[in-house]
Nucleic acid binder design. Structure first.
Lengths: 241, 241
DNA sequence: CGCTGTATTGAGGTGATTCAAACTATGTGG
DNA sequence: CCACATAGTTTGAATCACCTCAATACAGCG
């Protein structure tokens, strides 16, 4: 359901994740300009779709609250999860060139997405070079993530990398906790990592037994980040997002 | 070795792969402007490096001729290949945000790289919005590739996808041949796909026996593209690069 | 012509998948 | 608020795919 941002008191300058968003490097005045140009927000209940694969693409979306799963269904009917988006993430960059969505986007919990029309984004990029470099940064960071997972050769590494990725991203959101709640199911994780969901479960169990994490439903408490990082693929990332 | 582009008669308007490069969507006049602003080209012999991981990043590079391997060495001393770049590819997009190279870049054969200084690229993007969307396009295509490989769960698929990827990219270069010469070794391929080099070899051998390809040294003749595509992960790509 | 890196092949072990079944959460409607 | 249905998680056993190790063959290059 699409609502007015103003009616929900959504304002870029007060947003909890403004340091991750497109406006990150703008002055207060410039943020105000952007804010005034973004009218709408999409409110989704758990399980509702923002768009489907092959839909024409009209907007980028910024996750204002909640989380989403980006996926497609292959020729054999398997769900392939491309990415998960958390609060503060930008959805849709890959699809800009052809203006058609590659993927479907479904809410994993109650979620709201700020709507950034494509023509606005092109205008903003031109008007504010820092929006442009912000977008390059986000695209670049995504490429790093994809490449990181691509090189995780075995199941333990993949799952460790996955948890670390979520952890790091939550920490960027200034939630410096070691307790994280995964919004997605283990099946979703397996579809994202390209492995059997039983294997995901067994790796999590093993990490639990080895006291690297504790598992309670979808709550994960990371007890020993160092050992988890030692299990994962060494990071090539030198800086922050 | 760095030379003047003019001294080697390198000119964007006459380039064999201009339809892949940053200037793709520019008018002849605009291409001329860009060309005049790109002074240098780096000439590498096989095995020479353009840069090393952690070097400060000053430029993007466009592969004018030849091919390169982008890699890093992990904590255990393993070479991790991130990507191969062919004629017409753009190198370095991932590293823009922090202005430091994540990877090392080595020539797989005699190679020349047009040098695009970072400040030029920002200026060009601002001056010509189509350069900006071209860059997003390239980034988008890279993300698709990485995600594609990420979801190739088994060895047959990975190798099939790899060959197809090279094939498609060569075809974009308007070399509509079914005979392709891989510039990299099987060991490089295995390091890129995250599998044992013996497995790469066995898969290639199997494709050979099943008369999907023929193998002769680094020459691959693709006999049956349809069957190769059937082996690979279904593509989600709707359009061309 | 020999050296070095690359490709090829086989045997054996390990790790991940598959299939099957039981169990536990979560959500819905009566 | 409970009963039921459904979705998600957990576990075991059998199978299969890939990796590791080892040995040999080949190719390119000085």
């Amino acid at each position: 359901m699409i609502k007015k941002r103003s009616s929900l008191n959504v304002d870029c300058s007060k947003c909890l994740v403004k340091h991750l968003c497109l406006t990150r490097d703008l002055s207060a005045e410039e943020v105000g300009y952007v804010n005034d140009n973004l009218a709408n927000i999409m409110v989704l209940k758990k399980g509702e779709h923002a768009f489907h694969a092959k839909d024409p693409m009209k907007n980028l979306y910024a996750v204002h609250s909640g989380s989403c799963k980006e996926y497609w269904v292959d020729a054999d009917g398997n769900e392939c999860v491309n990415n998960f988006y958390l609060q503060g993430d930008i959805v849709g960059l890959e699809s800009i060139p052809i203006k058609q969505h590659f993927f479907s986007l479904v809410a994993l919990q109650d979620t709201s997405l700020c709507i950034v029309p494509l023509n606005s984004i092109l205008e903003l990029m031109h008007k504010f070079p820092s929006v442009l470099s912000r977008i390059l940064n986000i695209a670049s960071y995504k490429m790093q993530n994809d490449q990181h997972i691509k090189l995780s050769t075995n199941a333990n590494r993949r799952v460790a990398d996955f948890i670390l990725n979520i952890l790091y991203r939550l920490q960027e959101r200034q939630i410096y906790k070691t307790h994280i709640t995964l919004p997605m199911t283990q099946l979703d994780i397996s579809n994202c990592l390209g492995m059997a969901h039983e294997t995901v479960n067994r790796v999590l169990k093993k990490l639990n037994q080895e006291k690297i994490i504790t598992l309670e439903n979808k709550m994960i408490h990371i007890i020993d980040v160092k050992r988890l990082e030692a299990l994962g693929t060494p990071l090539r990332r030198f800086g922050q997002v």
